[in-house]
Design a protein around this nucleic acid. Structure first.
Length: 603
RNA sequence: GGGCCACUAGCUCAAUGGGCAGAGCAUCGGACUUUUAAUCCGCUGGUUCAGGGUUCGAGUCCCUGGUGGCCUACCA
């Protein structure tokens, strides 16, 4: 990884200020990030319209907290990435305004392992019910299940310039950081239960239950691995992990409010224990209490969540009320929709999973991936297409980059570009010093089989001056990867490694003449040592003219045009074993004289 | 039962707190020695799902309905 420049221009930090001197003061563009940041400031007690709000908050010692959280229970895919980037963008916007802000990331690795993804040894089902941080890594490369999935995301986020304060919930719980809050929840468990009950809208066995409902019910019963329990302990807001086996598969048997002794029997290993909630941090609050508890402890001002959390009766709605028990207030919230994936057929089948940020970064430059998440409203679902759409995506991105270079054209689109391109901690994220269209790089990579020298030469020949291949990174490597892994075989160009002797032997008189003339005149394009694309073009189109007794530069007759078509097809078959291919002059240039000779000369 | 999202050109989608409905692809036409897949330019193409309302002005806001999709209730 290359070091990232950390310069920050004053103008870049306060783009709004720079516009003041303009004679027609265009309003500062706004987008969902601006509004979410406004909300966060309001939540923290400031007035986002007040120019002095940053100084006021700073003077008051307020740090606006933007929180994200996720259970590292499996590969953290592109949908989950929205949790991080949504939070990140809002925190960045606050910092951009000079407001003290932090991005706090909670790893919910004290959550129980719920199910085993495909591809993992079925024997791992024995770990179901344990905290993610206590399950061994089936791939044996990390210290735990949780770490195995956290590590690659950390790396990807770092590459995307997304820095954050990380908190492991396992550590926090084990350190007793929440003990007071746990005890409080247990004391007020009747209130909690009444809140939860109020939001339980489940109808009391509808007499006209549709088949659909019945099926859904069956499903939920089938998935329910919880023991049934009755009475006060049935809805206990706290659940210990079994001291013997580490699973949360426990049935509570008694709780003493005086001593805070909690007794339980493990349904799996059968052992019974007593844990003291005050002195032995061996468990965690149930999710719907855990979340609001942390809002209050951490002073969260903004936190996004999947739309599933925002539905009535869901965790955010319920948490809004529960947090009051802690004297807190629910953070400002945006619900984000799901991110679809397309163009991954090959990879997802081979890797057996949904693509992650790291997967996407193999094809998309970091700012481009960020852009996908910045430019859409969170509640709008979108699709990351790593297939054919990638080319268009890069085209749009490059066009936007040109627009962004003109301050007069600053609008919401440009704002999204800026959010995608730079961060407060990483500065401007790496982009290629010499921007070559992605489609061009992909095509070149295809026919050159990834040879750096050839790529560099061709890019130069096509008019993109550059000092070395390094000037084409980080895009070139991604174009190579994309071409090899995401372009369908039938759309690719595979250069023959050996001459097609059978075909060469079966050629007719005219075809042999073409090939001889071709090989005779082609070297003239390399007369100066470096290839001349125009000259190659002349030769390629001129060969059929020569065969008809015309000169290279003559206008083609209808007869010649028909010959050209046949000649081209012949060359494609000999060079790339296909009926069609990239434009021949560039293809010939890409292959180089030696390769062309090797594949044709046997005629 | 409740909630959210979508519906715009043939296709995929834009339209940044109401202000002239736009791109890409496809089609078609043209230029570049070119009936080729790395270059350009241009033309076509619209009752913005339907109906009502607010407004000087609605794809955008409100109401009703339709179609499609997602989520939710028990648990984390």
């Amino acid at each position: 990884m290359r070091p990232i420049p950390t310069h920050q221009s004053e103008a870049g930090e306060h783009p709004g200020m720079a516009r003041r001197s303009s004679d027609s003061p265009a309003p500062e563009p706004t987008d969902w990030v601006t509004r979410a940041a406004d909300d966060a400031i309001r939540h923290a007690g400031g007035d986002p319209r007040d120019p002095a709000v940053a100084e006021q908050l700073r003077a008051a010692g307020t740090v606006v907290t933007c929180a994200s959280g996720i259970s590292p229970s499996g590969p953290i895919h592109l949908g989950n990435l929205r949790e991080f980037l949504t939070t990140h963008f809002v925190a960045e916007e606050l910092k951009r305004r000079g407001v003290p802000a932090r991005h706090l990331q909670s790893w919910d690795d004290f959550d129980r392992l719920r199910k085993i993804p495909e591809g993992v040894d079925p024997s791992w089902t024995t770990h179901i019910g344990k905290p993610l941080s206590a399950v061994p890594d089936p791939w044996e490369c990390h210290t735990s299940w949780a770490e195995h999935f956290k590590a690659p995301l950390r790396a990807a986020l770092a590459e995307m310039g997304c820095t954050m304060e990380e908190v492991d919930q396992t550590d926090r719980y084990r350190a007793g950081a929440y003990t007071e809050q746990v005890l409080h929840a247990i004391e007020r468990r009747d209130v909690i239960e009444s809140v939860l009950a109020r939001h339980r809208t489940k109808q009391a066995v509808p007499e006209d239950a549709s088949a659909e409902e019945a099926a859904a019910l069956e499903d939920s019963v089938a998935e329910d691995d919880e023991p049934t329990q009755t009475g006060d302990l049935a809805r206990f807001p706290y659940k210990p992990f079994c001291r013997t086996c580490g699973r949360d598969t426990v049935t509570l048997t008694s709780y003493d409010d005086e001593t805070t002794d909690l007794a339980y029997t493990c349904d799996v290993c059968g052992d019974s224990h007593v844990t003291n909630v005050r002195t032995q941090p061996e468990g965690k609050l149930v999710w719907k209490v855990d979340w609001p508890m942390r809002w209050s402890v951490e002073g969260v001002n903004f936190e996004p969540g999947g739309v599933d959390h925002a539905s009535p009766g869901s965790s955010y709605t319920v948490g809004k009320e529960i947090v009051k028990l802690y004297g807190g207030r629910a953070p400002s919230f945006v619900g984000y929709s799901f991110v679809g994936v397309a163009g991954m057929a090959k990879m997802s089948s081979s890797k057996g999973g949904v693509p992650t940020a790291a997967d996407a970064l193999r094809v998309l430059e970091a700012p481009v991936l960020r852009w996908l998440y910045a430019r859409r409203q969170p509640k709008q679902a979108f699709t990351v297409d790593l297939g054919p759409e990638v080319v268009r995506l890069y085209d749009e991105w490059d066009a936007l980059g040109k627009k962004a270079a003109n301050p007069a054209k600053r609008d919401a689109h440009v704002l999204a570009f800026e959010r995608a391109s730079t961060t407060s901690s990483a500065g401007t994220l790496p982009t290629p010093p010499v921007v070559v269209p992605f489609r061009t790089l992909s095509s070149i990579a295809d026919v050159t089989a990834g040879s750096a020298d050839q790529i560099s030469r061709l890019v130069g020949d096509l008019g993109h001056a550059h000092d070395s291949v390094a000037d084409l990174e980080p895009r070139l490597g991604r174009a190579i990867t994309w071409t090899h892994e995401f372009v369908p075989e039938e759309d690719r160009t595979t250069v023959r490694t050996t001459p097609d002797r059978e075909l060469l032997a079966s050629l007719g008189e005219l075809e042999r003449t073409w090939l001889h003339l071709f090989l005779e005149h082609l070297p003239s394009a390399w007369a100066d040592g470096s290839p001349d694309l125009d000259r190659v073009t002349t030769v390629v189109y001129g060969v059929p003219k020569l065969a008809r007794g015309l000169a290279l530069e003559d206008q083609p007759t209808d007869e010649v045009k028909a010959d050209q078509k046949a000649f081209f097809r012949l060359l494609y078959r000999l060079l790339v074993d296909a009926e069609r291919g990239p434009r021949l002059p560039t293809l010939v240039l890409a292959l180089g004289l030696d390769t062309v000779y090797a594949l044709i000369q046997a005629a």
